[in-house]
Simulated scan of single mutants.
Amino acid sequence: MTSTLSLDSASSLDAATVARYIDHTLLKPEATDADVAALIAEAAELGTYSICVSPSMLPLRIPAGADVKVAVVCGFPSGKHHSVIKAAEAALAIEQGADEVDMVIDIGAAKAGRFDDVQADIAAVRAAIPAPLVLKVIIESAALTDAEIVGVCQASVAAGADFVKTSTGFHPAGGATVHAVRLMKQTVGDRAEVKASGGVRSFDDALAMIEAGATRLGVSGSAALLSGATPADAAGSY
């Protein structure tokens, strides 16, 4: 696992290095097969770690020689799916070629302090896609208090998650913050990694999240971010 970088170290990262932190993401409901094909081509060109898509877009054709992993969301975006359904969705995604699954917790359970239920939900998906397959747990950090973030992160680690992840990018409460990423990393320590997603739109945003402890970034406007620009249309971005 990648350790937290100092601010000076993070600031020294170049675009090619930051690209390897990125899950290049397309989760808009209107996305087409052609859009996903373009996403894959752009990911290969930019050198991002992976692409992240909706499960209905599988299976995909990754060009020979392209070093691009496939991540798929599960229980997205509300998290209000039965654990059995989440587990089945995750298992099908892996069967259809996904390397990683990003699942959404039951946020209401977290708000009610039912962390045992959160852990059981995550554990059901973990059982369906055992290690070394990668499981990321989307906690929707902007909708949680600090205490709830800590409780959910502890539940995620106990259930065997590989990552805790800030946001879907679709919740009205907002997306990733440096504070949330830092708190999540402090909670999980070396037992899991942290993915920042939702509103990571500029190169400076990316560096700040990495400095806070993120080892993966969910980004929809990857080309603009890596060029140092801000996407012109960030509405509904992941």
Rank of each mutant, 00 (worst) to 15 (best):
I85L: 12
A147C: 10
L225E: 04
A87M: 00
L26F: 08
L27R: 10
T32F: 05
L144G: 04
G198T: 03
E30W: 14
Q119F: 10
V125Q: 04
V101C: 08
A229R: 14
D162Q: 10
I40D: 00
I105N: 01
A90G: 05
D35F: 01
S237K: 12
A15D: 11
V194C: 08
V72P: 01
A224T: 12
V36S: 13
E95S: 08
L144F: 01
Y21K: 00
I210P: 06
M209N: 06
D14I: 11
I149Q: 12
A88Q: 09
I107D: 09
L26M: 10
D162P: 09
D190Y: 10
I139A: 10
G218C: 04
P29C: 02
M103V: 05
A120D: 08
A123Q: 05
I22G: 08
D121P: 01
C52Y: 10
A64P: 14
A15G: 07
A124H: 02
A71S: 11
V150A: 07
H171S: 14
S56A: 12
R114Q: 14
S50V: 04
A34V: 15
L92H: 15
D146L: 08
V118P: 01
A223F: 06
G175W: 00
V53S: 03
T215Y: 12
R182F: 08
I62S: 11
D121Y: 05
G213N: 06
G160A: 01
I122Y: 05
L7I: 15
V188S: 07
A120L: 04
A206T: 09
G113P: 02
H81Q: 15
D162T: 08
S197Q: 07
